[in-house]
Amino acid sequence: MTIAVLPGTFDPITVGHVDIARRASRLFDELIIAVAHNSTKTPLLDAGVRVDLAAHATADLANVRVTQTDGLLVDFCAAEGADTIVKGLRGGADFDAERPMALMNRSLSEIETVFIVGDNALSHVASSLVRDVARHGGDVSAYVPQGVSAAIASALSR
Rank of each mutant, 00 (worst) to 15 (best):
V114Q: 12
Y143R: 05
N120F: 14
V148S: 11
L103W: 11
S149Y: 03
R99I: 00
R99V: 05
G91T: 02
A126M: 12
D119Q: 14
A150W: 11
Q146R: 12
N105H: 08
T113W: 04
A150V: 15
I152D: 09
A151V: 12
I116G: 00
S127N: 02
N120R: 14
P100E: 01
D94Q: 02
F115N: 01
A93T: 14
A134Y: 07
V117F: 11
R131M: 05
V86M: 01
N120I: 15
N120P: 10
E112G: 10
Y143M: 15
F95Q: 04
M104H: 04
T113Q: 01
S109Y: 04
N105P: 09
V125K: 02
S109L: 00
V117A: 14
A151G: 06
D139S: 10
F95H: 03
A151S: 10
R90P: 12
L89D: 00
K87D: 00
R106Q: 13
A121Q: 11
V133P: 11
D139H: 10
R90G: 03
A155R: 07
G138W: 10
V86I: 15
G92R: 00
H124W: 02
R135F: 06
L122T: 04
L108W: 11
E110S: 14
S107W: 13
T113M: 03
Y143N: 09
L89S: 01
I152T: 10
A155D: 07
G91A: 06
F95T: 00
Q146E: 15
F95C: 01
P145T: 07
L122M: 11
T113A: 01
A121S: 15
V86T: 08
I85P: 01
R131A: 03
S154L: 15
D139I: 02
A97I: 00
V130G: 13
V125E: 05
I85Y: 03
S128L: 06
S154F: 13
S127L: 09
P145C: 00
D132N: 13
A155W: 12
D94C: 07
Q146P: 04
L108E: 04
I85G: 00
A93E: 12
N120A: 15
P145A: 03
S107F: 09
E112P: 05
V114W: 05
D132G: 08
G137E: 11
P145V: 08
T113K: 03
G138R: 11
R135N: 10
V117R: 05
E110A: 13
G137M: 11
L103V: 10
A121W: 01
P145Y: 09
I85R: 06
L89I: 03
V117Y: 06
E110G: 15
T113R: 04
S127H: 03
V114C: 11
S141Y: 06
A97N: 13
G118P: 09
N105R: 06
S127D: 10
R106N: 13
G138Q: 13
G118D: 06
L129S: 07
E110P: 04
D139F: 09
G91K: 01
S141F: 09
E98H: 03
E98M: 08
Q146A: 15
R90D: 07
L108A: 05
A121E: 10
M101F: 08
M101H: 02
G118L: 09
H136M: 13
S149K: 14
R90Q: 05
A126H: 10
V140A: 01
A97E: 05
S107P: 02
A142P: 08
V140T: 07
A151T: 08
R135H: 12
S109H: 08
A155M: 13
